[in-house]
Design a protein around this nucleic acid. Structure first.
Lengths: 95, 95
DNA sequence: TGGCTATTTGGCAAAATAGTCAAATATGAA
DNA sequence: TTCATATTTGACTATTTTGCCAAATAGCCA
């Protein structure tokens, strides 16, 4: 396998891996509807806020979300809403 | 979060997780072109054949690939080629 | 400044994942 | 049956991921 191809797959896999968690999928789907602050996401997810924060870090590092500060609140948003179109295909796989 | 919603995300995450590995992405992309036997995939990937076999098991368990036996050879194929359309969006995230 | 709220970070233990070798299984041919 | 080839499985170690708690940081307001 060519080296640059390998690198490209590693990079892609990194982004996909960021999506590959139930909580993070929930967060992404929530952000699809609207920009949301961390505390609201914590209520939605039901885990410790530090856990939610770390999931958001994973998503941010992957480039899937970005944050905007407003006072004490950080509002997260989807950078590429297209990532959720994927869900349609996944549901086809599920059958 | 509702329990059935949670389960649905867990299920989706399982399928996405199966894709979230460089070698498995390579395999999926190779299978997009044509049905391929394990030994051919091993040459492509360059890892031990048992490693390749285990990656194929992960993909099979996720429902992403299926196998057809022909003599000693097992030919794997994509079950839902749509999973690779995803790549287009991922490449957008990468920018 | 100090106190308050929102969020992130560090440390840690448990669980999941990846990769390798050796052994087992499946099929076809002699 | 025995042999050879293709593939899977088991056992094992090393690495990564997850989730919680406590501590740290960031911004607002008095």
């Amino acid at each position: 396998m060519k080296q640059d191809l390998k690198k490209s797959y590693a990079f892609q896999a990194g982004i996909i891996k960021a999506m590959a968690h139930p909580t993070r999928l929930l967060i992404l789907n929530s952000l699809k509807k609207k920009e949301t602050c961390v505390c609201e996401l914590r209520d939605l997810v039901g885990d410790d806020i530090s856990t939610v924060s770390k999931h958001l870090l994973v998503l941010k590092n992957a480039g899937l979300v970005a944050a905007r500060r407003e006072g004490n609140w950080l509002h997260y948003r989807l950078t590429c809403p297209c990532v959720l179109d994927f869900t349609n295909c996944i549901k086809r796989v599920m059958k």
